[in-house]
Computed example of a mutant assay.
Amino acid sequence: MIGYEKSLSGWQCLSEVKMGRGSPIPPMLRRKIVEQYQKGVSQRKIAKSLTLSSSTVHNIIQRFRESGTISVRKGQGRKTILDARDLRALGRHCITYRNATVMEITTWAQEYFQKTLSVNTMHRANRRCRLKLYRSKKKPYLNMMQKRRRFLWAKAHLKWTVAKWKTVLWSDESKFEVLFGNLGRHVIRTKEDKDNPSCYQRSVQKPASLMVWGFMSVCGMGSLHIWKGTINAERYIQHDNARPHTASITTSWLRRRRIRVLKWSACSLDLSSIENIWRIIKRKMRQRRPKTVEQLEACIRQEWDNIPIPKLEQLVSSVPRRLQTVIKRRGDATQW
Score class of each variant (00 low, 15 high):
residue 121 T to W: 02
residue 317 S to I: 03
residue 221 M to L: 03
residue 260 R to C: 08
residue 48 K to M: 08
residue 180 F to H: 07
residue 325 T to I: 13
residue 108 W to H: 08
residue 112 Y to W: 14
residue 242 A to M: 11
residue 264 W to K: 07
residue 237 I to F: 09
residue 150 R to K: 09
residue 1 M to W: 12
residue 104 E to G: 08
residue 282 K to T: 00
residue 240 D to L: 08
residue 305 D to F: 12
residue 90 L to A: 03
residue 190 T to I: 09
residue 121 T to P: 00
residue 287 Q to I: 08
residue 306 N to F: 11
residue 212 V to A: 02
residue 210 L to Q: 07
residue 190 T to W: 11
residue 155 K to N: 11
residue 35 E to D: 15
residue 79 K to Q: 05
residue 276 N to Y: 07
residue 160 W to K: 14
residue 71 S to H: 15
residue 44 R to G: 07
residue 282 K to H: 03
residue 53 S to K: 15
residue 322 R to G: 02
residue 51 T to V: 13
residue 288 R to S: 12
residue 98 R to L: 03
residue 13 C to T: 07
residue 300 I to S: 00
residue 73 R to E: 08
residue 48 K to T: 01
residue 33 I to E: 00
residue 315 L to C: 02
residue 331 G to D: 10
residue 109 A to I: 04
residue 331 G to W: 14
residue 200 Y to W: 14
residue 79 K to I: 04
residue 165 W to M: 08
residue 178 V to F: 08
residue 168 V to L: 09
residue 65 R to G: 07
residue 165 W to E: 01
residue 15 S to K: 10
residue 44 R to A: 09
residue 264 W to R: 03
residue 117 L to E: 01
residue 155 K to P: 02
residue 80 T to P: 03
residue 36 Q to Y: 15
residue 321 R to K: 05
residue 334 T to I: 12
residue 300 I to D: 06
residue 327 I to A: 00
residue 194 K to E: 05
residue 230 T to S: 06
residue 166 K to R: 15
residue 280 I to Y: 14
residue 261 V to D: 02
residue 208 A to L: 15
residue 163 A to H: 14
